[in-house]
Every structure is written in structure tokens, then in C-alpha cells.
Design a protein around this nucleic acid. Structure first.
Lengths: 337, 337
DNA sequence: ATAGCGAATGAAAACGTTTTACAATGAGGG
DNA sequence: CCCTCATTGTAAAACGTTTTCATTCGCTAT
């Protein structure tokens, strides 16, 4: 219907030039109210809808940002994406969403696709920043911000929580309940967030309490429910040495842990205490309800996007590397302190 | 770095015309292999990246499709979105993702934004199709397909499962276990999928077994875990009349139901049987594991996108309105038949 | 040789805007 | 009443491609 109506048609209808139409469409103040109205009427009558592609070509702004996530079907990233989208909408941006599956080649390919599409900026999430990727980031013609993604020595804009301190707090709370042995069920250690941050927090809490570090108490998972169960069962095989307090790297693994315990006839939190990480909606959908470290996913997304808009608008920025607060949500999988 | 290199630069570097460069970039076969290589070398050397916006303007194709979902942070839509994105990628499309929150005005606004951005097509999800929206759909310059969204008399392309039959099957399986009273915990009845489809399936299964319909056995929820708990507790107040078999409209509500029952000291499936709907990942994260109707969300997304590509490519299409198969996944919240 | 032909290449228009440079109009000051 | 400045409007260039049409090139068949 109105798909082939151009600014020129509007100009003719309103008996002005296309530049004038452009001015009213873009809210330029240098237009006499009477002509503004005339033009607006013509627009309404014809059902004119500006062609954003042509606009993007002429102005070199697309009001579109790219978002690269590992997997949108993961509740964690879905929440993040929602935060991003909400503030994007607020600032009149749209988002092009891409799934990388954490595949380094795919990540680079997606980056190039997005740059080809002339996005105004990019928000990136991923477990590990391959150095090739970082190189591309550095030469990107548009700003890139990392969301819930560690930055190590590269100084890219990023928003995170302090994972080390969060893990520390979680483990410490367990220690405070009198436990001497604390199990740690973690995601892949190659990922900085696990291998460096959370792990460091785990160890430092132990050290602080003068508790020995014992390798057999840390078990590898892959973030899934099943891997959580499996890891807990492995811990259970330790028999009397089995830790009676578990810190799981994600809520989903924590659920697996709890069910593995219950399947083995144990009571949570009476026999075993469990604490998760992320505070996904899962946490309240299990009995006992899961005590967990809250990582504000939605907020991280929202703040990332806000940071990006600040960069795009060349607003004053206090710091490129923002750290959001975390806390522990006490529920029923730990004994109340 | 390579952001301001144009096709013209490449043409100069390779000593050919820009038309020839365009040909090799687009894989046009009418190029002598030797010049193709010459051009390709120039492209690689300069790091040329075609400007998709300019391309879109000239060709009137953006290789971008719009996706409107109620809420990406809902696991259900996240899964769907992943299905869409995967086949979009397969066909070289990108997706612009928008959240509508099922708000009719927002839906229309998003539609217009997407059309303004010249997307090649749109995939839409929503609980209820407001008639204004349908009118816009009908006059859309680009194809629109509905995913997991009922179409009633309008004949828009759509992909769904047969919700009525799925509900029927679920309720029948409960009846087959000897239950005379079946509880139905449903989402808002204004939504066609609940008020017409699932409800009709519930009633027809009852009728078929010559069981009376009793209004007090159907309770309204709003899809959430909490509303599922609440609904079950309401049912429990019926005392001896309380149905001992429950069909919940979503898995999340089913989890609420199970926990409400367990909190009240009942055993599932010994005392009460529960069956959910959707087969989200939640279904295996509860004890007992949830028997549920599987609605293949990912597949619905994938098939929707595939349908859209078929329309875009003007491929032969058997039917505009595809119905995917459903089935019941028997797990531990029902007694094995 | 050369006409004829298909394949390869090039020139230029078109896509729908924004933006720049400038022209016309109108108002106020001397 | 003329000149100067704002103010408002106009024309046209740019944006970076695709695409159409024309031209050139390199052969084959005569």
C-alpha cells in the first residue's frame, strides 16, 4: 500500500521541496509551523513511511545495534537480551540478534556481518575472548561493549559483576555455617569466569578461614542440569570425605545437585547445603528453594546498552568498565544464618 | 580500518569497473576466472566489506527479517527464536528481534518500524491478533508468517500444532488412568489458544468418555509458577471433590501444581497425577519428572522461518497453514499406562 | 580475411534519503 | 527607500551499491 511512497511524493502533495519534507520528518526547527502542518497532513494522508535504508545510507546511521550472544535459548542470555532490548527501544534503536554458540569462527563471522550491515554499535557476550576476535574488536569502526564477559587486560568497555568476590561470599557463607569441606561444581575452567574468577573466590574464602584446599572437592560440569547431577554423584563417592556444602557455578547445575542428593536419600539443607549462582527463575521452582548468588542479568543487559548509547552520543563517561553489585539471596537450600 | 573502502576503491585497485567487482562479490558467473581472481585479491588486500545498507537500497532486499515476540526472556519464546535464527542463518538472513509484551499498540508500532527498516519479511508471535493488526498485516508490502499464533478465519501463513487435539490427548490419557474428575489449569481464556483450543480439547475428551463437565474443576492461571500453585491450592479446597488428575496449560504452571501438592503432603503420581504442556526444559528439572505435551517450540520457529524463505523465494508451497505433530512425553508425574 | 556470435566488461542510471550550498523572501534599520 | 540579515525554501550532490543496456573482445565458421 504505502510501500512505494517516497519523500518526493509527499513533497509534491504538500507543494514543497523534498528537503522541507526531510526537515519536518527529522524535526528540524527551521520550518514555518504552517508549512510543517501542511507537510504533516500530506504524510498522514499518503501514509508515508520513511525508508530507513535510504536514510541509513545518506546519514551513515542505522539506529540499529548488533547483539551477539552464545545462545538465546539459554534463559540467562534471554534475560540479558531483554534488558538490552528494553533500553535500546528507549533510545530508538533496534537490535539484530545473533547466536554464536561460543564458536570463535562464528563470532568473527557474525561481527563482520554486523559491521557490513552498518550497525551503529555492538554488544557482545561470550565465555572466552579469542585473541583474533579482540584484534577485530580493536579495529572496529563502531563501538563494542562486552556484557557479562570478562575483559582481562584488554580495556574494552564492559559491564559485569565481581565474580571473584561473589564466589568468595557464597563460599564464606557456607564456611560460616561450620563446614570444613566445601564442594565446588564449576563450569569449564578455560573460561576465565570459572578458571580465574570464581575459582579464585573459592580458594580465597578457604584460605581466609585457614581451611585446606582439596582438589577432589572441585568437580567439573558444563552448566547443565545433568552435569550437576553427575558431579554431585561423583562427590558422593567420596563417602565420609564428601563435602556437605556445595557451591555450584550455575543454578541449573545446583538443581542437578539437589536432585542427585535427594535421589540418594539425603535431605537439603539438613544433611547438605547447596548454593547456586545467577538467580535464574529456576531458583524458586525447586524444593527446597535455592539459595543463590544473584547476578542481575537483565540489569547487565540494560546497563550495557545504556553504556553503548553513551558512547554513541559522545556523552561523558565515568568509567568504561562498570561493575554491578551482587548479593546472596538466602532461600531454603541453606540453613538460615 | 576498512570501513571506508568502497567498491570503487576495489575497482581501481583491480583495474576493472565497479560493475565487475559487484559481479564477483555477488557470485555472478559471467566473469572470467582470471579477472575474478584479480578482483578477489584486491578485495582481500584492501579488506573490503560490502556495505549492506547501500546494497539494500539498490537491490531492495535487506536479507533481514523482523521477529516480533511477546517476551524473549520467556523460555518458550527464546526457544522459538533460536529455531528462527538458526534457519535464518542457514539462508543468510539476519533477524531484528522485538519484544511486544503483547501490547496491541506496541505490536503495530513495531510492525511499522520493521517495515520502515525494509525487512524482507516478518515472523510474528502473539497471543491475540487485534483486528487493527490484522488489517496492517493484510496490507503489508512484505510477507508475514505467524508462529505459534492462532489465525482464526484470517488466512495468514502460520505454523502451529493442533492445540485442541493435544489437550484432548492429554486429558484422555488421564481419563484412561481411571480418573472421573480432571482438573484443568489454564492460561487466560481471552487467548484463543486457551479459551477455544485447549478448552475444547478438554471438554471433548470429557464428553467422549461420558464424563460430566464441572466448572469448578477449571481454574484460571497466568502461565506462571506461582499461579499454578495458587490454582492447585484452590482446587485442593474442594476437599473430597478435588480432582486427582490435573492438566496444566503450561509446564511452569504444572511445576507450581506439583509443588503445591507436595507442600500439602500429597504424593505425585500416587495420589495425584499431573500433566503439563510445552515440554520446556523445566519438565526434567523437577521430581517427579513431568509428563507433558510436547510442543516443539524450536521446530515451530524453524519451520516458520523456512516457510518465510519459501514465500520470499517464491517456491512452491503446499499449504500456508502448517500443523506440526505433537505427542505426549510420559515421565514420572503420571502413572505409566 | 571476416561476418557473426556469445561471453566478458563497462558506463551510467536508479535506489530514497540527508545534507550542503545557495537563493528567495521578508523584516528592520538607517 | 535601499541595504543588510534572518529566515525559509530550493536544487543538487552525496551515500555505495545493483542493474540495465551497450560495447568490446575473442572465437568459430564461412
Amino acid at each position: 500500500m504505502n510501500s512505494n511512497i517516497t519523500i518526493y511524493d509527499v513533497a509534491r502533495e504538500a507543494a514543497v521541496s523534498m528537503a522541507t519534507v526531510s526537515r519536518v520528518v527529522n524535526g528540524n526547527p527551521n520550518v514555518k509551523p504552517s508549512t510543517r502542518k501542511k507537510v504533516q497532513d500530506a504524510i498522514d494522508q499518503l501514509g508515508y513511511r520513511p525508508n530507513a535504508v535510504a536514510r541509513g545510507l545518506a546519514s551513515k546511521k542505522t539506529t540499529t545495534v548488533g547483539v551477539i550472544v552464545p545462545d538465546i535459548s539459554n534463559i540467562f542470555f534471554a534475560d540479558l537480551a531483554r534488558g538490552i532490548e528494553d533500553v535500546a527501544t528507549m533510545y530508538k534503536y533496534n537490535i539484530i540478534l545473533c547466536n554464536s554458540d561460543q564458536n570463535p569462527e562464528k563470532e568473527i563471522h557474525l561481527l563482520n556481518t554486523l559491521l557490513g550491515k552498518q550497525v551503529d554499535g555492538i554488544i557482545f557476550m561470550g565465555g572466552r575472548l579469542h585473541e583474533d576476535l579482540v584484534r577485530e574488536f580493536k579495529t572496529s569502526p563502531v563501538p563494542i561493549v562486552l556484557a557479562a564477559t570478562l575483559n582481562q587486560d584488554y580495556d574494552l568497555p564492559a559491564v559485569n559483576i565481581d565474580y571473584e568476590s561473589a564466589a568468595h561470599d557464597a563460599v564464606k557463607s557456607l564456611i560460616d555455617h561450620g563446614h570444613k569441606r566445601i564442594g565446588f561444581i564449576t563450569g569449564p575452567l578455560e573460561q576465565q569466569i570459572n578458571g580465574e574468577k570464581k575459582f579464585a573466590g573459592y580458594r580465597s574464602a578457604l584460605e581466609e578461614a585457614n581451611l585446606p584446599f582439596d582438589e577432589q572437592n572441585v568437580v567439573l560440569g558444563n552448566y547443565t542440569y545433568d552435569s550437576g547431577m553427575k558431579a554431585m554423584n561423583q562427590l558422593l563417592e567420596l563417602g565420609a570425605d564428601c563435602p556437605r556444602a556445595i557451591f555450584a557455578g550455575t543454578d541449573e547445575m545446583a538443581l542437578g545437585v539437589i536432585h542427585a542428593l535427594q535421589d540418594a536419600g539425603h535431605q537439603v539443607p539438613q544433611d547438605f547445603e547447596v548454593i547456586g549462582h545467577d538467580n535464574t527463575r529456576l531458583a524458586t521452582m525447586i524444593r527446597p528453594k535455592l539459595t543463590t548468588v544473584v547476578q542481575p542479568m537483565y540489569d547487565i543487559g540494560a546497563v550495557s546498552m545504556r553504556l553503548l548509547t553513551k558512547i554513541l552520543n559522545k556523552e561523558e563517561i565515568e568509567t568504561n568498565d562498570v561493575t554491578l553489585p551482587h548479593r546472596i539471596e538466602e532461600r531454603d537450600s541453606t540453613r538460615s544464618s
